[in-house]
Computed example of a mutant assay.
Amino acid sequence: MPRKPASSSHSPTRPQALANWLLFVALMVLVMVTIGGITRLTESGLSIVEWEPLKGALPPMSQAAWEAEFEAYKKIPEYIEVNGPAGMDLAAFKQIYFWEWFHRLWGRLIGLAFALPLAWFWIKRAIPQGYKPRLLALLALGALQGSAGWWMVTSGLTERTDVSHFRLATHLLIALFTLGGLVWTALDLKAFARRRSARPARLTGFATLVLAGVTLQLLLGAWVAGLDAGYIARDWPLMNGTFLPAGIDWSRGPWFAFTHDPFLLHFLHRWWAWGVVVLLVLLARRVKAKGSRPASIAIHSSFGTQILLGIATVMSGMAITFAVLHQAVGALVVAATVWGAHVIGRKA
């Protein structure tokens, strides 16, 4: 029997398979953001002072190797000025080393989980027309994220006892931007799998405004984290008994205060959150009007949980459980917002 000519269209199941793969990688990125929060909150991020993409995948395997890692750590300011005087020993060093090593290992696993299936889908010609550049861009974002992570770490190896809050924010925002790109592309592919005539969703002006508002809140949150500004007040809604905290240093100008002062940044992060809530409620209403009630519920649920976790984090004195969940749910807010933006940006 003569063989049928190959169809020029892709298999109906392959766009869905691509979407499922991207959503799985997005879940891995969410876990990565959570591990990053633990690494930061346990002050573990500077425990590995070298970047070894291959050799560094394994932890020290002998007592001598552990002692060599500890000796390297003893040369940086964090140990000299903070942990050394506090009496850190090898056992305590191993605890902080684990989280930084695990953070880097998970990043390597994300790279493999993206690159290897991408190569397979590419070879099998399973990628719909127009999606290859987007997938390559996501791969490049992953590589950029790894580089930004090391760039962040280097800021704390010579003159500081911690990392630059600007570099910390860059590292986090790239991760969340990547998460958003993964979710958006997966949603486009799911729509394409349902209907081959479906066009990719567009980013509307209103959605851009909402995403900009969320991004500003994420930036403020990253700066609060990098400056340990969450520790300066344990009451809510007031800060140390007043609405506007008394400790803001305006002596070097408003811009310096906005980018460096922990009191002002904590205050702004608290109250801009309500501006973001307004934007997200408006987005959710538009999403529901478009007939996507699950996306609307996801938006409301994520920001509601995030607000409660933020308050709990402050009032608990930065209890690590609440603080880590606050960072993790922040990533869920990003994913839900991207979902909503996608809904209002796609054609009926």
Rank of each mutant, 00 (worst) to 15 (best):
W21V: 03
A298W: 06
F114G: 00
W122V: 14
T305Q: 11
L238A: 13
G241D: 10
H165I: 03
M239A: 06
H103Y: 06
E100P: 04
V25D: 09
F206Q: 10
E52D: 12
V314C: 05
G84Y: 06
H342C: 08
A298P: 01
Q327Y: 01
H300E: 14
V343N: 05
D162N: 14
A273Q: 06
R194K: 15
G181Q: 04
A298Y: 08
T337P: 02
L187M: 07
S251D: 07
G230F: 01
A6N: 14
I174F: 12
H10Q: 15
R346H: 13
F192K: 14
E67W: 14
L325T: 11
S62D: 09
A257L: 05
A65K: 11
L157P: 02
I174D: 03
L41E: 09
L27N: 13
L218I: 10
L308Y: 12
H165E: 01
R167M: 07
W184E: 04
P60C: 04
W184Y: 09
P245I: 00
A191W: 05
S8E: 13
W51S: 13
F303M: 08
F93N: 04
G181W: 02
S164C: 04
R199N: 12
S62R: 11
G181H: 02
G37V: 01
R202V: 06
T154Q: 09
W21A: 06
A331W: 00
N20W: 14
S62H: 02
T34C: 00
D188A: 04
W122P: 10
A91R: 09
A335S: 03
H165N: 02
S292A: 15
L187E: 06
A169H: 10
T161H: 06
I232A: 00
S11G: 15
P133K: 08
K4H: 15
P77W: 01
F102N: 09
L209F: 11
G45Q: 05
F93D: 00
P200K: 01
R40W: 00
L138Y: 01
I344C: 07
T161W: 03
G330C: 01
L18M: 05
Y79P: 07
F263D: 14
R199H: 11
P85C: 05
V277L: 12
S301Q: 13
P245A: 03
Q129N: 14
L187G: 10
W150N: 10
E67C: 13
F243C: 13
I299C: 05
I110M: 00
K132D: 12
R134D: 04
H165F: 00
T13G: 13
A148K: 11
K94W: 07
A6K: 15
L176P: 02
N20D: 14
H326Y: 03
A115K: 08
V333E: 04
V278D: 12
R108H: 05
G226M: 02
V153T: 02
G253Y: 02
A207K: 12
